[in-house]
């Protein structure tokens, strides 16, 4: 099964795009991919799949790619695992990358899990650190057991070495309009009618980026659906509103604002967790915050172990008082 003797080189980043909008995590991976490619002395290649996406390829070059491979066809919009997977497989077989990085979004994970199998690739999920050793072997570090342990995963005998990374783990690559690189249109190998599925409707809402915020105020189950005090405090602190998965599942807050293992990683100076219990899967997304403040009615809530300052109390009282002290607008009456 090993194919050691064939040469595999270059670091690829899958640039996730929906209707022309690029997922922010793709630019984060370009920054990381640039570091890895510089270390191994290889090229950084952006893979762009979609319809009318030449400009995305050009932007990827401005953000650090040496080359962009663009597969442009109506069959690729909206995303479906089948057509994307077949195209990816053809490109991998033809061009043999050594490393492929993919954003750990719902789409990225759907795609990565599909393509790793026919490519005979090793795929490491949700990496938080990526490095290469002297032989170009990818060292992928990832949390397991809800973040209690870190595992280093290698893929010694199979290429490509693939990894997914959740949004917010790395800083995004900046745009530099002076950077040069090729944007190459590749042959599309997919027929419109071999797809096993068809998208009937698609509705994309808020794609807020909470990963760059200096202040994040997050609410959880304890809000009981009333996010007004959370929003008012975020406003007073010029921060972003975020949420636990519970609050997102209840439909109180958009998924783009979910913090945690299956949401985003945030690294603000200040993270306020209001009415959030502190489950491991949540804490994993906020552990890198500089200072954590917790507001919870339960003195035994695990969140207090992960907080610098905690206050035992009802968030519907504590947050408005805090907002007041911090010079924010007076909070609106609860809408319950």
């Amino acid at each position: 099964m090993t194919d050691d003797d064939t040469v595999h080189e270059d670091v690829w980043v899958f640039v996730e795009e929906h209707g022309g909008d690029v997922a922010g995590v793709s630019w984060e991976l370009l920054a990381k991919g640039r570091e890895l490619a510089d270390e191994t002395g290889e090229d950084l290649v952006a893979l762009v799949v979609g319809e009318g996406v030449d400009d995305v390829g050009a932007e990827a070059v401005e953000r650090g790619a040496d080359r962009a491979l663009v597969a442009d066809d109506p069959v690729f919009e909206p995303y479906r695992a089948g057509p994307y997977g077949d195209q990816f497989r053809a490109l991998v077989e033809e061009r043999r990358p050594s490393i492929v990085l993919i954003g750990g979004t719902t789409t990225g994970r759907d795609f990565a899990g599909r393509v790793a199998v026919p490519a005979d690739a090793g795929l490491t999920a949700d990496c938080t650190e990526l490095d290469v050793d002297d032989e170009g072997l990818l060292l992928a570090r990832r949390p397991t057991f809800g973040g209690d342990a870190m595992a280093t995963i290698k893929c010694p005998d199979h290429r490509p070495q693939m990894a997914t990374v959740r949004a917010g783990v790395f800083d995004a690559a900046e745009r530099d309009p002076d950077r040069d690189g090729d944007v190459e249109a590749v042959d599309v190998v997919v027929e419109a009618d071999d797809a096993l599925s068809r998208v009937l409707e698609r509705e994309v809402g808020d794609v807020a980026d909470i990963t760059d915020a200096d202040v994040v105020v997050a609410g959880g189950g304890g809000t009981e659906g009333d996010f007004a005090p959370v929003e008012a405090l975020a406003d007073a602190l010029d921060g972003e509103v975020a949420a636990s998965r519970k609050a997102v599942d209840e439909g109180w807050v958009e998924p783009a604002r979910q913090v945690g293992q299956t949401g985003k990683t945030v690294r603000p100076d200040l993270y306020v967790a209001a009415g959030i219990s502190g489950a491991v899967q949540h804490v994993e997304g906020m552990n890198d915050a500089e200072t954590v403040v917790a507001v919870n009615t339960d003195p035994n809530a695990p969140i207090f172990e992960h907080a610098d300052y905690g206050i035992v109390g009802d968030l519907h009282e504590v947050l408005p008082e805090l907002t007041d002290r911090l010079g924010g607008r007076s909070p609106p009456e609860p809408t319950a």
């Binding site: 595992a151 280093t152 907080a307 300052y309 002290r325």
Partner: peptide
């Protein structure tokens, strides 16, 4: 294809874990 090369406990993040009594103190922090 993947091999777990090593496993270690994640470095726990050091937190103050200070419980403050009132909103004024929290607001100062």
């Amino acid at each position: 294809p993947t091999k777990v090369g090593g496993m270690d406990t994640a470095d726990p993040v050091e937190r103050e874990q200070a419980v403050v009594d009132d909103v004024d103190a929290l607001s100062d922090r």
